Amino acid sequence: MAQAETHYTLPLPEFDRPAKLLIVVAPYYKDIADQLVAGAKAEIEKAGGSHEVIEVPGALEVPTAIRIAYRQSNFDGFVALGCVIRGETTHYETVCNDSSRALQLLGLDGACIGNGILTVENREQAVVRAEAAGQNKGGGAAAAALHLIALTRRFGNGNKSIGFKPLRDEIQLAGDAEGPASA
């Protein structure tokens, strides 16, 4: 197997108040999922954050679970974890593409998500990428979520008003600026 190329890794952000993350994992390949979760937990704890872990049946359910939590809870960010290994059918492409696309759309909607759903050709590739002491893709996904949380906090918490913004502070009514015409 080829050696992994080295790359630059951003230092973890620092927080004045701890970040709270939800780790959503599809444990279809339990041993691989456990390594991904271990890496994610360690990275979150290293940044002084807290975490909760929930399991869903498969990679396609990960984005749905994140959306539910994003809409109905108080997590600062999310870590999506799981593993999809190519099989003999086109189901691999469906699961990889749809889970990734759904996570991206949630991110564009403001959710701070680190995507650690492995999409690999075989089990050996998955093991190498999942090992917390190795490539640690679970830790990398947690770090990505932490960086997005830091950006969100830097630029404001993302809670923007919904609806129209008035151009001025005073209220203007439709009609003649002088008021109603007298008869």
Rank of each mutant, 00 (worst) to 15 (best):
A183R: 15
R154P: 00
A183P: 07
K41C: 11
C96N: 12
D31K: 05
N115F: 11
L151F: 11
F15M: 06
A2Q: 10
A142F: 12
R153T: 06
L12V: 02
V62C: 08
N115T: 10
I66L: 06
N159E: 15
T119K: 07
M1L: 14
G48T: 10
P27S: 02
H147M: 14
E61G: 05
L105I: 09
A183E: 10
A40I: 07
G49S: 07
L12N: 11
N136H: 08
H147D: 01
L21A: 04
K165G: 00
T152R: 07
V120C: 08
N159G: 01
G156Y: 12
V84G: 03
P13E: 12
G110I: 13
R71C: 04
G48Y: 11
T89S: 12
E88H: 06
H91P: 04
R123K: 15
G134I: 03
G138I: 11
D98R: 11
I117A: 07
L12A: 14
R154F: 15
R71S: 02
V24E: 01
V84F: 04
Q35I: 06
E55R: 03
A183H: 08
A2N: 13
Q172D: 08
I54S: 09
S73V: 00
L12P: 13
L103S: 13
N122G: 08
C112N: 14
Y29N: 13
G48F: 00
I171M: 09
C112I: 10
G156H: 10
E88Q: 14
Y92C: 07
D34W: 06
P11S: 11
E52M: 05
A145V: 01
A141N: 06
Q72D: 07
I66Q: 09
V95H: 05
R86S: 10
G49L: 09
D16R: 10
P180C: 05
A40S: 10
F155R: 03
K137T: 03
V128S: 06
G179W: 06
H7N: 01
I117V: 15
A38R: 14
V127N: 10
T89N: 09
L108Y: 15
